[in-house]
């Protein structure tokens, strides 16, 4: 099975972004609750905006969105969406390792189903259009000059 490098990049940024946001929100929620009850919304904004973990999570999710749009510009939606669901597996694994969440029997079954599903979609025909032959530098210069 071959996955496009951008698919892997989108999955990595999305999972890591979600994990960082979860870590940040779990840590910040007591102080956010206090600010919310006191209706100090600016303080809430400042709390999250000055938190490195939260902002790294947001930056990663923004990067994910740009990569996702790039994928959609090149490939079928019915390929991109199922294949990026491999991220569910990565997120579940990272959550188990970094956040200490438990993975039960049925969740393992879910992970197996997703893995098999991603494999089937990834090998489906015409998933990735064959890349255009790359111009060598010399050819590129020649076509620039003749244009």
């Amino acid at each position: 099975m071959r996955l496009h490098p951008l698919v892997l990049a989108s999955v990595a940024t999305n999972s890591m972004g979600n994990i960082l946001l979860t870590m940040a929100m779990k840590r910040l929620s007591p102080s956010l609750d206090t600010s919310f009850q006191a209706r100090r919304f600016v303080e809430m904004g400042l709390t999250v905006a000055t938190d490195p973990t939260f902002m790294s999570g947001v930056a990663l999710l923004a990067t994910f969105f740009v990569i996702f749009l790039t994928l959609l510009s090149k490939m079928d939606l019915s390929y991109v969406l199922p294949v990026t669901s491999v991220g569910y597996i990565i997120t579940a694994m990272l959550a188990a390792i970094l956040l200490g969440e438990k993975i039960s029997g049925p969740r393992w079954a879910g992970i197996a189903c997703i893995a098999l599903g991603v494999y089937l979609v990834a090998r489906s025909e015409q998933a990735v259009p064959s890349p255009a032959p790359r111009k060598t530098d010399l050819q590129a210069v020649e076509s620039e000059l003749s244009a």
Binding site: S78, I111, I114, G117, Y119, E125
Partner: peptide
């Protein structure tokens, strides 16, 4: 062009996400 392999994979992923 959604072929049979892609459909089967998509349904398995739906089931997997449900189980997860």
């Amino acid at each position: 062009n959604v072929d049979r392999s892609r459909w089967t994979g998509t349904l398995l992923i739906t089931l997997g996400a449900y189980l997860l």
